[in-house]
């Protein structure tokens, strides 16, 4: 698993995905796949094109997680069109509340950085809506995406940005693919801000979740499962108190597993933190 910061994009339609792929330099990952996958050369950005509906939204999110090799530090971003009763077409909104209409389930994406986008509630429905009530957006994937993505990471790392595409579905006036791509393109600077915020959070989580490297101490010694847990805990303490200092100054090459644990514990217990040091 890679502990570098990452953003995973889940996008329903190709016309929504195209401007994002262009902006962030994502290219197709070759090979057969149930959902098309794209990634940037540095592998910071990954994208899955899910298709329409809750089942596809959930399955594609899970699939992308597998392809990326997992990691609870991954930030998840769903961008796509949504209906709204009266907001001007092309308007961008950040989702702050989701109601899954068929089940009544509610979700609350949490914003912990300034995204420069106004918040709005979202109704996830199973059929395109001909009429829209109230002040909410309407889509067909949001609740499923959030439900799955917030299990894979934490909800603060999951964001939905919607672009108003219609005021109720009417095939005669529904926007063309090019129009949709154009609207998503106009959100590019907003998406950049969102991505910067999410990558910063992802980096924080990557730091938190990356475990100290035990291999140099495990190599050539037999540690039981319990001893491995003890060693992991001691190395967490070592890193907190001594940073990148090498354990070789404390551990002898001929120490067995028990000896390593004893030496590390005695050394760490003897240290008194100097709170005057930052």
């Amino acid at each position: 698993m890679s502990f570098s910061p990452r953003v995973a994009w889940v996008i329903a339609l190709d016309c929504e995905a195209r401007p994002i792929r262009d902006a962030f330099g994502l290219a197709p990952v070759p090979g057969p796949a149930p959902y098309p996958i794209y990634r940037s050369p540095c592998e910071t950005h990954w994208m899955v094109r899910s298709g329409i509906g809750r089942n596809h939204g959930a399955a594609a999110t899970m699939y992308l997680h597998q392809i990326m090799g997992g990691g609870a530090h991954i930030a998840w971003l769903n961008v796509g069109i949504a209906g709204h009763a009266n907001l001007p077409l092309g308007t961008g909104r950040r989702v702050n509340q989701i109601l899954e209409v068929s089940t009544g389930a509610t979700f609350y994406p949490t914003q912990v950085f300034d995204s420069q986008l106004m918040g709005c509630s979202l109704f996830t429905v199973d059929e395109p809506q001909k009429t829209m009530d109230g002040d909410g957006l309407y889509d067909m994937e949001g609740s499923a995406f959030f439900s799955i993505a917030s299990r894979l990471s934490s909800q603060e790392l999951v964001m939905l940005i919607k672009c108003v595409s219609d005021h109720g579905v009417d095939q005669d006036t529904f926007p063309s693919r090019d129009t949709i791509s154009g609207w998503i393109s106009t959100l590019e600077s907003t998406l950049m801000v969102a991505v910067d915020g999410l990558l910063a959070l992802s980096a924080m989580e990557a730091d938190r979740l990356s475990a100290p490297d035990l291999d140099p101490l495990l190599r050539g010694r037999h540690f039981t499962v319990t001893q491995t847990h003890q060693l992991r805990s001691l190395m967490r303490r070592w890193t907190a108190l001594k940073g990148c200092a090498l354990v070789d100054t404390v551990v002898n090459p001929d120490d067995d597993a028990r000896g390593v644990i004893l030496r590390l514990k005695n050394h760490l217990d003897s240290l008194a933190t100097d709170w005057r040091e930052p």
């Binding site: 609350y108 106004m118 918040g119 909800q155 924080m204 938190r208």
Partner: peptide, 26 residues
């Protein structure tokens, strides 16, 4: 401030999958 109407506070506050450390930022 953004205002979001809810039924009971627990549906936001007690939900699983929250990250206390990240939330503490805002």
């Amino acid at each position: 401030a953004e205002r979001i109407l809810i039924e009971r506070y627990g549906e936001v506050f007690n939900r699983r999958g929250q990250n206390f450390r990240l939330q503490k930022k805002q």
